[in-house]
Simulated scan of single mutants.
Amino acid sequence: MRKLAVSRWFGGAVLALLLTGCDAPREQVTVHERSAVPDNLSQWHVVEAIDGKLSLNARVVPYDLNTALFTDYAHKLRTVWMPEGSSARYGEADFDYPVGTIISKTFYYPLGENGTVVRTDDYSGDFAGSGLDLSKVKLIETRLLVKRIDGWQALPYVWNDAQTDAVLEIAGDAKRLQLVNANGSAEAFTYVVPDSNQCAGCHADNHAQKAVRPIGPRARHLNKVFDYRDSGVQDGAQNQLLFWQQVGYLTGMPDLADVPRNVAYEDTSASLEERARSYLDINCGHCHNPSGPADTSGLMLYVAERDRRKLGVCKPPVAAGTGSGDRLFAIVPGSPDDSILNFRVESTDPGAMMPELGRSLAHEEGAELLKEWVASLPGNCS
Rank of each mutant, 00 (worst) to 15 (best):
K310H: 12
A88L: 06
L357G: 04
P25Q: 10
V118E: 01
I140P: 00
S7T: 15
A320N: 11
N289Y: 06
V225Y: 03
P62L: 05
Q209C: 01
W44A: 04
T251V: 15
W159A: 04
D255H: 09
F329L: 01
V118C: 03
F10E: 14
D133K: 08
G292N: 08
P378T: 12
Y109H: 01
R213S: 10
D121N: 10
D72Y: 06
A211I: 02
N380I: 01
A182W: 02
P62S: 11
S335F: 03
E364C: 00
G285Q: 02
K210H: 12
E346S: 15
P336M: 09
P38N: 13
V332D: 00
I331H: 07
D72E: 05
L280S: 04
K53G: 00
E274H: 07
Y90W: 13
A200E: 10
L280C: 12
G11E: 06
L241M: 10
D205E: 07
A188G: 09
P316H: 09
V192G: 03
R218W: 00
R213P: 00
P293M: 04
F343H: 15
F189Y: 14
E84M: 07
D161G: 08
A320V: 08
R359F: 09
D281Y: 05
V37I: 15
L111Y: 01
Q234A: 11
R327Q: 07
I149V: 13
T348L: 10
V225P: 00
D267V: 05
V6Y: 01
C199N: 05
P62Y: 06
H288I: 02
L361M: 14
Y97P: 10
S130Q: 09
P333D: 05
L17D: 09
K175Q: 15
F226E: 09
G52R: 06
Y123K: 08
L41F: 13
R218I: 12
K371C: 05
G172Q: 10
R308Y: 03
Y97I: 07
T106I: 07
V60G: 02
N206C: 05
L15K: 10
L272D: 07
L17M: 11
L357M: 12
N342D: 13
A375R: 14
G232Y: 12
S7K: 00
D122G: 11
L155N: 05
D121G: 09
G131V: 07
D51N: 14
K210L: 05
L41W: 09
P378R: 11
D307W: 03
K138Q: 14
H288W: 06
P316K: 03
S360E: 13
A264H: 04
N160D: 15
L299G: 04
A352P: 01
A174M: 11
V345Y: 06
E169A: 15
D195V: 06
Q246A: 15
T251H: 08
L134P: 07
A16R: 12
F189L: 09
G358H: 12
N197F: 09
D133S: 14
A13L: 04
